[in-house]
Design a protein around this nucleic acid. Sequence first.
DNA 1: GATTTTTGCGCTCAATTGCCAGCATTGGTT
DNA 2: AACCAATGCTGGCAATTGAGCGCAAAAATC
Lengths: 258, 258
Amino acid sequence: MLAIERKNQILAKLIMDGKVLVSDLSREYGVTEETIRRDLEKLEKEGLAKKTYGGAVRVDNLNADIPFYVRKQTNVESKQYIASIIGSMINDGDYLMLDSSTTALYVIKHILHKKKITLITNSIEILLELSNKSGWTIISTGGTLKEGGLSLLGYQAERMISNFHVDMAICSCKGIDSANGITDSNEQDAEIKKAFFRNAKKRVLAVDSTKFDKSSFVKICDISDVDLIVTEKRPSDFWLENLKSANVELLYEPVPEE
Amino acid sequence: MLAIERKNQILAKLIMDGKVLVSDLSREYGVTEETIRRDLEKLEKEGLAKKTYGGAVRVDNLNADIPFYVRKQTNVESKQYIASIIGSMINDGDYLMLDSSTTALYVIKHILHKKKITLITNSIEILLELSNKSGWTIISTGGTLKEGGLSLLGYQAERMISNFHVDMAICSCKGIDSANGITDSNEQDAEIKKAFFRNAKKRVLAVDSTKFDKSSFVKICDISDVDLIVTEKRPSDFWLENLKSANVELLYEPVPEE
DNA sequence: GATTTTTGCGCTCAATTGCCAGCATTGGTT
DNA sequence: AACCAATGCTGGCAATTGAGCGCAAAAATC
């Protein structure tokens, strides 16, 4: 038996059982315990096992599996909070559009208990999250896979979006600024968001407070083009006034559910 | 014996058995171990093997890196083998369509080292697998997420597919039968495969040998409509004759690469 | 027939494994 | 809490086996 084969089998056993014992493995493979320890040592170096006295245990680094998830998850609490507010506005039977943001994914997690949701998204993570969901209608925009990301972009996606009209579109952005409006860091993402907003009755922008007074390269739309902005804490008086005059609703606290 | 011939036989053995030993192969082919090592070196460069002390193992991170969807992986060896044959037919710069089958996913894993591939797929797993790939163009068909699955279906997907024309479409099926042709278990999947085939110059059907003489509910197309069938072992004389008269190419062994 | 590719040989280097001695950890006992 | 025996761990060493490299011969290709 090849050394690597033994190592792989140990890994498989480790994954299945959660733990392995040096003594067992030594007997099972007919090698000395030192050899087993050296195998476990390698697995530990690869981040797949954690050695302990007498054996090793599994290390559950599901995050490490899908490299995409490694991206920096900034402001998780803010995004969760924003997502919970948005989630509380969604009702059974709603028709939604969601972009490919972390916040959108959190929104999904908050509304998993709702019935008969129909949604259109360009996020592959959302599709994955919902692959076991029954009773919903989940439509992917299709399009070109963004390099190094899990979102679908391009004119095919835009055209697909244009075929649908929904109650509410939920998008995020990179910056919101009174001079430049709502902006994103690249054209393709911005175009998708434009398309979402074009085809939704209610346009919801999810932005954590760090995005205020920032602007990025590509304009998505004017501030007055969105219907509702959801953030995680009370913006400055300037912004309250600004949004009010632009006739944009603002939420930074949970809404009482019906 | 030609060097390439030996290399292909080693590959076949590797895929079927999961591993090969340098010492065995050296004895079996009557060449020195260096020669075998050089063969394995080439296979490793092509991404088809992983050299290790004493031999080589199949690139079998496949089982390890799809931890969530631990769906029953039937006939893994057959599918791997079929995928390697198909993979060897794909060249840098090719335009492909791939359906949402396990075999298609394996094909992807076998061609990760190719350059500038453009592909269209309705498989979410393939999108995931390729989310970190740079230099390729990866297009999702979009469409409705299949309940309990990771594929995209529906007329939106079909329409997206109809916008593209590719060199080769690679699909699987549930059954192939001389009376009923090529069949699948549900209409939506079948429609997608029809669309793939409609828009491809070369239509490749990947079927493990258990699918022969089976038929399912929905017809995809006639046997004579496909250009190439790839399977993992020599079908019966009846089928050889049948496919020959239908003018369908058949492969069940690795093809010599250029 | 010339050129490129493949193969074999001899050599050195590297990897794997087992063994052993000494040290650390554990769990139970006083 | 201190102690002790059992079990496990670590690091060094040696033996075995495989790997890598350069070069020359053989084979295939043009």
